[in-house]
Design a protein around this nucleic acid. Structure first.
Lengths: 159, 159
DNA sequence: TGCGGATGTATATGTGCATATGTAATTCGG
DNA sequence: CCGAATTACATATGCACATATACATCCGCA
């Protein structure tokens, strides 16, 4: 019976992610944001990153997708780029006033969406979910880094 | 402190989904499959769907993405379409022998990936994760359906 | 019987992600 | 101080997903 594959954490997480993304997208759209924007917006606002490279690292996506996203965000008046005086390759990226003004509402909407979806979960269950997901992400990072390094194929047979 | 948004289940699930998808994609690529193919392949093999519409329902994606995926899968020799004798709008979709032959390996790869990622989880924890995710998905479906229905905005203020 | 609504597909467009690859600017070794 | 490696970014291409919309076929009902 191969329906097993469709009950694995991997597949379930994919389903959950799509559901969450659709919901959040719908909630953020009236505010002029997309789900993927949030890490960028938060990072810029909190001064945690100001170059394309740092933003990509922070959001955990690759550089080309980040470049595209920033292009759209600039087109939509959410960010601005200024040439970096110290490095001719880089741009300093800043939030526009309009984006910064709407950001708190976006955050509220996302938190509200999470509360609604987790309405039937106890605080303990929600915490457990977050903790399991955090461990899972860390584990995925480990597996990915092992996969990536050409050497050091440590103990593949060990499962 | 707004880093909270990046610690919500919604965002964590998105991170986990991307990580899992990348891993699975890498594992399936040598076999000529993509992650999104699996629900389609399994549904076709188990006779659970044979039209584009049913496949979309089964995979829980919309019809246009399914149409595109099927077009690529047909191009890549994974499926074949035959006109439905009973309905001029539909096609009966079937797995090719090549796809069916490689499917078990794909399933194995995915299960192996799940085992590797969950290596540090006890059986109980893994089960818990699956159960929490299942409930979360159900909850997302509920919220989405409430969102969709124009009437019956039941008790929005109740959170 | 024929027409209008429902249904199955197809197409267009946009976003989010990926990899592969090119370009330009910086930095560093000799 | 100059050439090479590194770095930051841009571009091209492809897949997975979404919505909006058009089109063709089917079916129920007057």
């Amino acid at each position: 019976m191969d329906l097993d594959v469709l009950m694995t954490p991997g597949h379930l997480i994919s389903l959950a992610a799509r559901g969450f993304a659709r919901l959040s997208e719908a909630r953020l759209k009236p505010l002029g944001f997309g789900v993927g924007h949030l890490p960028v917006l938060v990072a810029l606002r909190d001064g945690r990153a100001s170059t394309q490279r740092d933003l990509a690292r922070f959001a955990k996506i690759e550089q080309p997708p980040m470049a595209q996203m920033l292009a759209r965000m600039e087109r939509d008046g959410l960010i601005e780029r200024a040439p970096d005086p110290a490095d001719g390759r880089s741009s300093r990226i800043t939030l526009t006033a309009a984006a910064e003004a709407r950001l708190p509402d976006a955050v509220s909407e996302l938190l509200r969406g999470n509360r609604e979806v987790l309405r039937d979960f106890t605080a303990g269950e929600a915490g457990l979910l977050v903790s399991l997901l955090t461990r899972l992400i860390a584990s995925l990072d480990r597996v990915a880094s092992v996969e990536a390094s050409p050497a050091a194929r440590i103990s593949e047979s060990g499962d």
